[in-house]
Amino acid sequence: MTLSRRETLTIGLGAFAATFVLPKFAFAATEDAIAEFTGGAATGQGDLTLTAPEIAENGNTVPIEIDAPGAEAVLILAAGNPNPDVATFHFGPLAGSHVASTRIRLAGTQDVVAVAKMSDGSFVEARQEVKVTIGGCGG
């Protein structure tokens, strides 16, 4: 029997833990990853939009989009994953806009975090909670 990553995580952590209680290490790892990206600088609110579904039907493939006009790079983190790193987008001189979409894996209900490095050297942060459904029998 082949277990999907999500099933394995769900069984391993227990549906309860995956849904409601994010392991402490995940928070620390997320903060560490942000600090590494910002060099310890504080993050503020600003011109950064993170779009993700409020409810994802399956955590294996969750569509997200970032829109960060004026950003040089955007770090994406999944705060509740065993390893919060997801991706870092660097926009080059021929980027037509600073909008990008991809599909990501989420181990359970959690915050998706985006941190943008703006061209003036400041950092902007956006978060959105995505509820990941545990599924039915699902075959």
Binding site: N58, T61, T133, G135, G136, C137
Partner: peptide, 23 residues
Amino acid sequence: MIRADHLSQGQVNGFPTYRLKNA
């Protein structure tokens, strides 16, 4: 709903089907 899943009529007109569950 069966737990958090929205039960369909189990139609097969969409098969073969790409499932997000197993990609």
